[in-house]
Amino acid sequence: MSLSRTDQHLVVGLRLCALLVASIVLLVFLFLLTESWPILNHISWSRFFTDHSWHPVQGFYNITPMLSATLLTTLGALILATPLGIASALFSRYYAPSFVATWYRRLIELLAGIPSVVYGFWGLTTLAPLIANLHPPGVSLFTAILVLALMILPTIALTVEAALISVPNAYHSGAVALGMSRWSMIIAIVLPAAQSGIVSGIMLGASRAIGETMAVLMVAGNVVQHPHSVFDSVRTLTANIALEMAYAMGDHRAALFVSGLALMIMVLGFISLAELFKWKSSYA
């Protein structure tokens, strides 16, 4: 069907807008690269991993303590939030009476919208003192893991529930006809059928945890070190950027943009994994 003159004008306008939107992503990468170029240009990549410490003002750029903190907090949060998120989704889909399920879902949606700075503030004023009783100083890897787990739990719960809803009803009828108990039905039929949606929910949670800044900044203690126990203070890549951008100059500033680039690469890795699982499932 050919387009009229008005429609053709409209399409040109729309294309321009869409091009502008698409170019934002390219601009983000372009500026991350150009801002990190000054340092990538004159020191080698490996120094970000082999320098003996992170003292950017003196010219030492070892980011591995921050990298390990980011990976440990993310991993810890995932280990805690995944089973809880899946259980929460199972509750509102298969266990709760319908009016309870509606309210429960509303609560989870509300929690997904609570600002990270509020979670961080709560962690700092309420959770950290409790953990300090257990083992000082209170602001630690452990606290960060707990707060992050709370934050990504709604994300995981909502995506897993969406995956559960898309399991065909015939599967349930089949299970009932076979006389399976609710739990065997879930383990043997529902969870395998919803597997890909569950995995992409976890990946979504992981990418949120890696990129989270404020909550971790407020509760992790921000000491640049490889933690020896879960009660040690750590500083993540994101917290490092937020703390040092205000006064960073020259190579130091460029090094922070390099850590931004590293974050972007990790997040893209998780997103592509999530895509891969979705793709695999739709062609299975």
Partner: peptide
């Protein structure tokens, strides 16, 4: 594709940008 990537950019990276 660009939108998928944009949705996944961490907020601190938006801050840097």
């Amino acid at each position: 594709r660009c939108l998928d990537v944009l949705a996944s950019v961490p907020s601190i990276v938006f801050g840097l940008f």
